[in-house]
Structure formats: C-alpha cells, structure tokens
Design a protein around this nucleic acid. Structure first.
Length: 840
RNA sequence: GGGCGCUUAGCUCAGUUGGUUAGAGCAUCUGCCUUACAAGCAGAGGGUCUGGGGUUCGAGUCCCUAAGCGCCCACCA
C-alpha cells in the first residue's frame, strides 16, 4: 500500500535505469509510423541549466505522448562540441594548472579537450537521466563524431564547388581574447560610455583644418582618407586635396563619399578601411590602401611608432594626450554608444581585416524564403509569429564568416601550396600541401544536425525513415544561430525542410524578470529543484506554466503547489487502490452504471479529447490545466466522495480503476515517475509499464449527459454556502419540496433519509437550484430572508433583466447565431421558473 | 529607425474562430481533524481586462491611437 505522503525521492529512484534496460526508449519498430525529434545538442561545456530542463521536458512530453499513441517515436540525443565556448573553458583550466595553452602542441591540447568532453558528457547524461528523458541512446551522436565530421566536410566541399563558399579578405568581427573571427550573431551590442574626439586634420599647405570627430582616435594610424559628402556645400570644394594625418604626418586624400552624413557630427569622417566595415566599403569604392595597425591580441603593431605594443585602450589615452599637447584636439564630447562585444568572452570586438572563409548567403536564404511560401513544405513555427523572425533574417542576411582561429572543431578541408588552394574530402596527393589551420564555426556543424545525426550523406535506413524530423523544440533566442541555418542547409542538401514543426519556447527569468545568468548569480540548478520537489514536479511546472513562446518567471512557490498536486494524485490513488484491492480482472465491468459513474466517465472522455487536442497543437499549458481540473475537481472532490457511498459495488470499483488508470496514462508524459509508481500497484494492467501503455482514446460509449450531476453539484454548493453563512451546525432538519433523485445530494451533504425533523425550529429556508429544492429547518434569532436567498434572488433578477433586454434587442435576435439566441431564451426560462419557485 | 511581445484579481499566469455574469494556482478571510490527502476539506471576498477612440446586436478578444515594460534587427564616423 502507498505511503500517506508522496515521496518524490523514493518514487524516482531506479526507474530510469529499468526503462533504459528494457529498451522502452529505443525506436525502430518498423511496423509503426515514425515520429522524430532530434535534441538540440547541449554544449559539452558544463551543466544543464533550467532552460535545458524546460526545452527537454517539452520534447519528452511530445515524444512520450507520440510513443503512447502508437508511433515509432525516435528522440535522438547528442551533444555539441561548442567550439569557442569549450576551448575557452579548457584553456582556462590549463591556465589554472600553470600551462599556457597556446604554447602546447595542438594534438596534446586536443587530448585535453577530449578528456574534458568525456567528463562533461557524463554529467549531462546523468542530468538527462534525472529528468527522466526518454532518449534513444543507441543512436546518440556528437558533433565531432566521424560520421558527422564527414557530413561537415561533404557540405563544405559541395558548397565550395558550387561557389557558395569562398575565401576572402574582409572586415570581420575579431575577438582579441579568443583571437578568432566571429559571425555577426556572436556579437552582442552593449551601451558603453565613450567620447567623440574632435581632431584637427590640417589641409595640406594651408593653415586651415578639417574637424574630424571620431570615437576611436587610436585608429588614426590606419587612416587612408578623410571623407565628406559630395553634396556638402561646406566641404565639396576640398575634395581632391590632401590633409596631413596627425602624429603620423602623412598626406591622405579628401574624398567625396555618401557614407559621410552631412547631418551627423561635423560631417567629416576619417576613413580607416582595415578597421571599420563601413570604411572598408568606402575603401573599395575609392581604391584606398588598407592599413592594418593592430596585432591579433588588439595591441598596436609596429606601424604605430612609439605606440607599438600598447593595448588599444592605453593607446587611445596616449594618442589623445599627444593630440592635446600638439594642439590638435578641439573637444572631447562624452557620449554613450553601442559597441559590439564577444558573446563568449565579453571583450570588445575589434573590426579587423583578415582572410576568412565565408558562406555566400543570398541564394541559400532566397531558397528558404521561397519554400516558406509553400504550405506543404514550409517549416511551421509554433507559435506562428516566430516565422517572421526567420524570414526577416533571411531577407537581410549577409555572408556568414565560418572560419574560426581555434583548435576545437572541424578542421577546414582546404589545403594550400604557395598560391594554390585545394578543397576536398581528403588531403591532396603530392608534397608540400599544408592544411588550413582554422576550424569551422560550431554552428556550421549544428546546422546539419537534423540529418547529419541520421547518417547523411550516407543514404541509410535511418535517414530515409526519420528525416525530415517531425518536430524541433528550441528557445526563440537561438532562431538566428541555429533554426535559420538548419533550415537553409536542410533545404539545400536534402531538398526538404529539416523539420515539419518548430516549437518555440521563451526564456527562463528570475522572479524580478531578469534573465538568469552566471554574472547575476540568479541561476537555478535544475538538479537542486529535483532534489527538493522531484523531476515530475519540475517537468509539469515548466511545461504547463505558460503558453507557447512566452518567457517563464521562475517561482519556487509554484513548484511547491505542483508538488501538492502530485501529492493529491498520490492520495487519490491511495484511496482507489485501497478500495479496489480485491477487484479481479474478470469482475471488471462498466455495465450497470450509476448516474455518477456515467458523469465521471463522460468527464474523463472530454478530458481525453481536450488533452489530445491540446497536445496535438503543442498547447501544453492547456493540456495541463485540463488534467489538473479533471483530477482535482471532477475526480477527487466529486467522484471519489460520491463513490464512498457505494464502495462495495463492483461497478464503482471498476469505474475507480478505469478512471485512475486512464489518469495515470494521460499524465505519464508529464510525470513519468509517479505515474509509473502508481501504475505498478494496480491490481491488473494492460502493460508492464505505463511508459509503453496506450494513450487513452475517447469512446463514444462514454458520451453521457453530465447536466444532472452538474446541477446536483451546484445544488450541493449552494446548500453548503447557505449553511456556512447562517452558521448552521449539525442541528437542523430538512424537508424535500420537490420530488426527485436526492441520493447523491443526501450522501454528499450527509443528510440521509428523506425527511429529518427532529424537533420544532423557529426558522426555515428553501435552498433551491434548478430542479432541486430542500427546505432547511433551523433555529435563528433574527427575522427575515437569509443572505443566501437574498443573494440568489438579486442574482436571478439582474440576470433575468439582462437577458430580457438582450432578447428584446432586435439587432441581437436577428443577427446572432440561432443556437446562441435559443440558448439564451432557454436560460431565461429556467431562471424565471427558479425565481417563481423561490418566491413561492 | 524597423519589427515583435507584454500590460487581465494582491502575486504568477490562462482566456480557442468576437457570443451567458472574465478563469486557475498562490495569497487573504470564514468554518472544519469529514479516516485518500490539514502539503487537506467546505465556503467566501477580490477584476470599469493599461488609457482613449472606432467597428459590431455584442469587444479582454478585431481596427486605430497613446503610454509603460521587455526583446529582436539595423545604424551609430
């Protein structure tokens, strides 16, 4: 028998291991229709956070539901090598050991990185297990696996041969800490206090100067022109002349270019083509020299005279001091502006001229935009609005910088010999070829995840059967990084969308609404939550708390209340199990149903219908609310109470059994542990585990009208309210004013017998609801109608007036749908009758 | 600058294609140890749905508009 209290620790012990050993999570039943989800691979950098718990819980609910619905459900697990993030962590660890990672042999370093990966992958496995995720580990993948690496090379080589990958010298976002290029998506813009330095650039051979305003005076070493707008009346006559570059004392031309905004600042811009993306474009138009003035670590290089070797920020100070001394500094205007920072290392990104590999995005993005117009082949976002985010990105996207100056990742399959470049799956024959030292952006391999995990480019059974994936679940924050890229790569290489549905959830925030982050220290470890409330509570809370796509404010009180809900289910089960202990399978029957049996079976049927409908639409909050209401209100508060008066009846037992086992199945995708625990204690069952049982289906046999019992319940409530408001204790009498079936009402109110009048009372009151009317006899000191009665009369009167007015309105009766108007008339009639009865 | 979201009970959130008197959990108040559960039960109170305008017989829901909060994208010499 069950303990009186739900103990999540006991319940969640050992079950996962059994499920895994039994192979419940393994896909491959070819007789069934496949349903696939591929997990968003977590980074092997560390622990899973609450966001992962949310993301994976949603997926587990979907996949368990589909599995129970009879699909060959594959949920493929895997992890991401997470290039820059992992490399930074491994480097830090090495530094802590006193080792300079960049002085290590590359292969030695990689050994350390793989050791790190193994360690953290185990952590993640443990956490997945605690969460109870039904992953098919036989198909687990890692982005650096041989197969996936092959897929990466294949894609690189093909895109290169198609002219969609190229190598070029461009201004890229440079992370001086990690010393690597970054993509635009890896740059976070933050408001930073800075200044406009107004500097005099003297016009060659004159005493006149141009007032140039810049936020980055230290880059003047790389200036190769000064631009004014060609339409600018103030300066256009100067175009073609030269200015003397301060400190450097070099002549540079004044050019006319539309990049110079007449309205902004002084209208004069210094042009530094090697250190600013806009200036780079200007440089291309005017054929300007590109002078790189920094080293990869963002210190100034040898072109910067005595400033060489200085950090860029120190250099700025020194240059400003020097300009001031030379009388070239006009003004320092303090401003706040947006400056790019590296997503991973948080250092200020340096726009930097360097040779990198790029994916030419335009044709790939256009293909996505085209495909999204086709209802049958598009990626369906849930909620729909997130499609706009992808489409917008596709519209404005520009070439993707994919090379990273890191060690941890897929080596770029390009080899160089002098000026020759070879791109191929394997190293070219012949002597003297040197492979590109760089690796690919992590997201390059992630972009292939939906099919590279299924053996692509090998045309295997896996790929054939499980691709496209049915569903992808992820947060809206990684649509640009990942969803978009999977979509264009999927389309380009398989000719199909990578997944049919893309279910988007929000971010987890703290109680104040702030994003959870390491720096704020407001993060919550899902393992701590599981320790305290159990995985079932955490899962149910996360999955059902908010509607789709919304952020979730983490609130521990809600977990406590979810725990209470499970405890309620636990105790209801305890009651049922106690009552059906002796129920034999062969006795089980749903014949000879009493009215309350029909009522609960019908309510169950509705719940099944709702939950299925909501789950099919990925509306987990609605599914949760539906289950919660059914379990607590319909089953516990009403049916169980009613059943206590016919507990020896084999039909009652059968109904209790039927409803409980249905509840366990319905809730199993959300709460796999507790449902399993209780299911295992049923006297007989369809399957050895609820995990592999069949998800309940609606049954037209159970479509009974629930009105009668609903009305009785309303009557019971009215009666109780009356008693409470009039402080009536146990001493009162009742008289039945109207004939009818009062059995349930009597039982629930414990007023057994048709008539109880123990003695004379000085007061009485009719409690009436719809077809039921009971006179309550009691002692009362003061006179007059009871509050309950007054309230009901007032309620009825106002409602009747409202309905009369509504029905008198011709616009309403002529334009509103007939069934709604009829229902209105019907209700009016009922209320009028009730009022008449009350007033006697 | 462009776009998106949010604003509903004290708090956290639901609210299907417009259709009774807007719901839930927590919190509050009242009464209960009623043998499944006091982490519970039975009740109660609490909302001019951010403001303004419009469409409609009818608006929390659709349209316009204003405000506050949050996010995304772009620009910022």
């Amino acid at each position: 028998m069950l303990e009186t209290k739900y103990d999540h620790k006991k319940v969640e012990e050992n079950k996962y291991k059994t499920w895994k050993e039994k192979g419940y999570f393994n896909a491959g039943d070819m007789s069934k229709k496949p349903f696939t989800i591929v997990i968003p691979p977590p980074n092997v950098t560390g622990k899973l956070h609450l966001g992962h718990a949310w993301d994976t819980s949603i997926q587990d609910v979907i996949i368990r539901y589909k599995r129970m619905c009879g699909y060959d459900a594959l949920w493929l697990p895997g992890m991401d090598h997470a290039g820059i993030a992992t490399q930074a962590k491994v480097d830090r660890k090495l530094k802590d050991e006193g080792i300079n990672p960049r002085e290590m042999d590359r292969d030695e370093w990689l050994k350390r990185a793989w050791a790190w990966k193994d360690e953290y992958a185990e952590n993640i496995h443990d956490q997945w297990a605690k969460l109870g995720l039904s992953l098919d580990y036989t198909k687990e993948r890692f982005t650096l696996d041989d197969g996936l690496s092959r897929a990466v090379r294949e894609v690189f080589v093909k895109l290169y041969n198609e002219g969609l990958i190229y190598r070029g010298e461009r201004i890229i976002n440079w992370d001086p800490e990690a010393k690597t290029a970054l993509s635009n998506e890896e740059v976070i813009y933050k408001d930073v206090k800075g200044a406009f330095y107004h500097i005099k650039y003297f016009i060659e051979g004159t005493d006149e100067f141009l007032e140039v305003a810049t936020t980055r005076p230290e880059t003047l070493f790389g200036d190769t022109a000064v631009a004014v707008n060609p339409e600018d009346e103030r300066y256009k006559h100067l175009i073609g002349k030269n200015v003397i570059l301060p400190i450097v004392e070099k002549k540079i031309p004044i050019i006319g270019d539309e990049h110079a905004d007449m309205e902004f600042g002084t209208g004069i811009v210094k042009i530094t083509p090697a250190h600013d993306p806009n200036d780079f474009e200007v440089g291309v138009r005017h054929n300007l020299e590109r002078v790189v003035i920094m080293n990869p670590d963002a210190t100034m290089n040898e072109l910067c005279k005595e400033y060489a070797g200085m950090d860029r920020f120190t250099c700025r100070e020194k240059v400003v001091e020097r300009l001031e001394k030379d009388g070239l500094l006009i003004e320092i205007e303090e401003i706040t502006h947006n400056v790019g920072h590296s997503e991973r290392t948080d250092v200020m990104v340096e726009p930097y001229l360097s040779k990198q590999w790029f994916v030419k995005m335009r044709p790939l993005a256009d293909a996505v935009l085209e495909n999204q117009k086709n209802k049958d082949t598009k990626v369906n976002f849930v909620p729909e609005r997130f499609e706009k985010i992808m489409n917008h990105w596709m519209e404005i996207t520009y070439d993707w910088c994919i090379s990273r100056q890191l060690w941890w990742g897929h080596r770029i399959p390009a080899w160089y010999k002098g000026d020759e470049v070879y791109v191929g799956m394997e190293a070219p024959d012949g002597e003297g070829w040197i492979q590109d030292a760089d690796v690919l952006d992590t997201w390059f391999s992630s972009a292939l995840w939906p099919f590279s995990t299924l053996d692509w480019p090998i045309k295997s059974e896996l790929l054939d059967r499980y691709y496209p994936n049915d569903c992808l679940v992820t947060g809206y924050d990684i649509i640009p990084f990942w969803v978009n890229r999977m979509t264009f790569q999927g389309l380009h290489f398989t000719g199909k969308r990578p997944f049919k549905d893309c279910v988007i959830h929000g971010l987890i925030r703290d109680k104040q609404g702030r994003k959870m982050s390491k720096s704020l220290g407001n993060g919550v470890d899902p393992m701590d939550v599981i320790e305290k409330y159990g995985a079932d509570a955490l899962r149910y809370y996360l999955v059902t708390e908010v509607s789709g796509g919304m952020d979730l404010k983490y609130d521990e009180e809600k977990l406590a209340s979810t725990w209470n809900f499970i405890n309620k289910l636990w105790n209801a089960s305890r009651f049922v199990l106690m009552n059906i202990e002796d129920l034999k399978e062969e006795e089980y029957t749903l014949e000879n149903l009493k009215i309350e049996d029909k009522w609960i079976l019908s309510k169950l049927d509705h719940t099944i219908k709702d939950v299925r409908r909501y789950l099919d639409k990925y509306e987990f909050n609605n599914a949760g609310a539906s289950l919660y209401g059914f379990i607590w209100e319909c089953f516990c508060d009403n049916y169980i109470e009613m059943s206590k008066f016919s507990s020896d009846d084999v039909t009652t037992k059968s109904v209790l059994y039927h409803v409980l086992s249905s509840i366990l199945k319905l809730i199993s995708p959300f709460m796999p542990y507790v449902s399993e625990e209780i299911y295992s204690m049923l006297p007989f069952k369809d399957e050895e585990s609820v995990t592999i049982s069949k998800y309940p289906e609606t049954d037209s046999k159970n479509e009974y009208s629930t009105n009668t019992v609903d009305d009785m319940i309303e009557f019971i409530k009215t009666f109780r309210t009356f008693k409470l408001e009039n402080k009536i204790g146990k001493d009162f009498g009742v008289k039945y004013n109207v004939d009818g079936d009062y059995r349930l009402i009597q039982n629930m109110l414990r007023i057994g017998g048709n008539e109880i009048i123990n003695r004379e009372y000085n007061s009485s009151h009719d409690v009436i609801y719809k077809d039921y009317s009971i006179k309550v006899l009691y002692d009362k000191d003061d006179e007059g109608d009871s509050e309950t009665l007054k309230k009901r009369i007032a309620e009825l009167k106002s409602s009747i007036t409202r309905r009369q007015n509504l029905l008198a309105n011709e616009g309403y009766t002529s334009k509103a749908p007939k069934n709604i108007v009829d229902a209105e008339r019907e209700k009016l009639k009922e209320e009028e009758e009730e009022l008449k009865r009350i007033k006697g």
